[in-house]
Amino acid sequence: MRRLFRRIFRPVRTAREQLLKDLRQEMLEILARGGNLDGLMTVALKALRLILLIDRDLRRNIRDFNARYSFICLDGNLAVSVSFKRSRFLRQPVMEVHDEAIDNTNITVTFADTRTMAEFVMSESPDIFAGILDNKLALDGNLNYILKFIYLVRHVPKRMGIEPISCPA
């Protein structure tokens, strides 16, 4: 039975790995372009969604975790959101990515520019306090949720094999 399941789901797994590679490529291209980092946040979040599907250990973090986040960037007029919930179809917790701001969030993070937004998802150690003090980042909501989210998102550069963006001192 287990073997049968493996055979059925092998193409799904392969497709996910391929998708992850594609997202990695997309991120590298955005980073190589330099300057405007529009889109990096969305791609990184999609990567995190995929990693959570693939990695059972990491997925344990979102078991019974119903949370909603919005990320807004002022200079690019960008908004992207994520929500965590249990998928009836997959019978497991999942993360969804939305290309817009959503209501009833646990926390909304507003970035001054796309660079700060990119650092948030792609740096070795995202520093929200430094961001607040430098007037580059504002939080509205339960701070604890962003701490948990940073824990999750720090897996993205590592898992994608991409050098983290270094934050300016």
């Binding site: 604890n144 701490l147 720090r154």
Partner: peptide, 8 residues
Amino acid sequence: LGIWPELE
């Protein structure tokens, strides 16, 4: 919970 982001 302040150390949550850096547990690893």
